[in-house]
Simulated scan of single mutants.
Amino acid sequence: MATAGKSLQGVLQNDLEPEIISHDPETGNEKSKPKDNDKSIKTKKKKKKKKRKRKTKAQKEQEKLEKGAKKIQQDEDAMDKFINKINMWLAKHLSEVFLLFDTFDTNGTGFLSYMQFKTGLVEVKIPCNKVELHLFTQLMDDEKTNLIDYQKLSHGIIKNRMVEFAEELEYCEVCGMGETDATFNPKIKRYVQLELRMSTFNQIRNHHSHFFIVVLSDTLIQFLINQIFLFTQISTTRMALFTDRACTADSMLPDNNSLEECGFFGYCKSHPQEVVLFYDFRVDFTECSLLMADHYF
């Protein structure tokens, strides 16, 4: 009885609802609007969902490389190890790399595409995985032209290339760069970007014996001399660093002194102090068979 009563009440309620009547402005006739509870009105069309475009395999691989490269850049220790590894490898294999890239550069422009650059480095067996190789390629393309000036490899990877400057700052609040009487905070590690140039070829701007290196301000001069040996593969026991291109005795830096003790205090990692030093050496002839011979013929 309760169920029958409810159904009867619903029927009566529907019959008692006033019918909405409106006038047709064109004909002047009255017309009734359908009731709101009409099932045909309540039926809504289902909206078609837009299908997302599926990424290609190449796009997915590219995104993976970008994420991996960004992760290395965000880790300072990992970035330092990566740059040092590449610079040390280039010091030993630079001539081999140049010979191969010269064959790729058939037009003699000095530029290679990303694909040519990566393919060549893989061919000479650079100690990098795919992510590191992608990062290396990005660092070599400073102006984002998708072309690599492979002649810049003679300079190695400059450490502050990984810092993207929104604008050139005249003063740094962290390290005091740009202030003549800056207060040096001993807790902040300070860096010096060195351009080491062989004095003999100083007039040649991009000679392969010139290279860059970024080190802490407390680095010893002897360590820098060892880096020159690794980069140039010069065999001598008499190598020295100078502040003057003439390499005079007064401008020679003592081996046991640090850069700070030589007057190069450095700035923060984002703005390393830029310094140009010159190196020179004397060739040892201790193993020369002609000089060691008793008689000349």
Score class of each variant (00 low, 15 high):
157 I>D: 00
201 F>C: 05
130 K>Y: 12
177 M>V: 09
201 F>I: 06
180 T>S: 05
155 H>Y: 15
159 K>D: 14
151 Q>T: 15
190 R>D: 00
193 Q>P: 00
143 E>R: 10
220 L>H: 09
147 L>W: 12
150 Y>K: 02
156 G>E: 01
169 L>E: 13
133 L>R: 04
132 E>Y: 09
213 I>A: 00
178 G>D: 07
154 S>H: 11
166 A>W: 07
186 P>A: 08
162 M>A: 09
212 F>T: 01
149 D>E: 15
175 C>S: 11
184 F>G: 00
166 A>F: 10
196 L>H: 01
164 E>S: 12
182 A>P: 02
221 I>C: 04
194 L>C: 05
179 E>S: 09
177 M>L: 11
174 V>E: 10
153 L>C: 01
172 C>N: 07
189 K>Y: 01
220 L>W: 03
128 C>I: 10
163 V>I: 15
216 L>Y: 01
129 N>W: 14
130 K>D: 15
184 F>N: 04
185 N>C: 04
226 N>R: 09
143 E>V: 12
163 V>H: 13
159 K>Q: 11
141 D>G: 05
164 E>L: 14
128 C>Q: 13
196 L>A: 02
173 E>M: 07
137 T>R: 06
184 F>E: 06
188 I>S: 02
164 E>P: 03
144 K>F: 14
143 E>S: 09
183 T>H: 08
182 A>L: 07
179 E>A: 09
159 K>I: 03
183 T>V: 14
209 S>V: 03
200 T>I: 15
179 E>M: 07
185 N>L: 06
206 N>K: 08
201 F>D: 11
222 Q>N: 06
136 F>I: 13
160 N>D: 15
141 D>L: 06
172 C>W: 00
147 L>K: 13
160 N>Y: 11
129 N>K: 10
221 I>N: 01
208 H>G: 03
144 K>G: 04
215 V>L: 02
213 I>Y: 00
227 Q>R: 13
163 V>S: 05
217 S>V: 03
163 V>C: 06
159 K>G: 07
181 D>S: 08
139 L>Q: 08
205 R>W: 01
179 E>L: 12
136 F>L: 15
173 E>Y: 11
165 F>H: 13
175 C>N: 05
157 I>A: 00
150 Y>C: 02
224 L>K: 02
200 T>K: 14
131 V>R: 05
156 G>F: 01
158 I>K: 03
159 K>P: 01
144 K>T: 13
184 F>Q: 05
148 I>K: 07
159 K>H: 14
209 S>Q: 11
207 H>N: 15
151 Q>K: 15
148 I>H: 06
149 D>G: 04
209 S>N: 12
171 Y>N: 06
171 Y>V: 14
172 C>P: 05
140 M>I: 03
178 G>R: 04
138 Q>H: 05
172 C>L: 07
176 G>W: 02
153 L>F: 13
171 Y>W: 04
171 Y>L: 12
166 A>I: 11
129 N>Q: 07
213 I>R: 01
167 E>G: 05
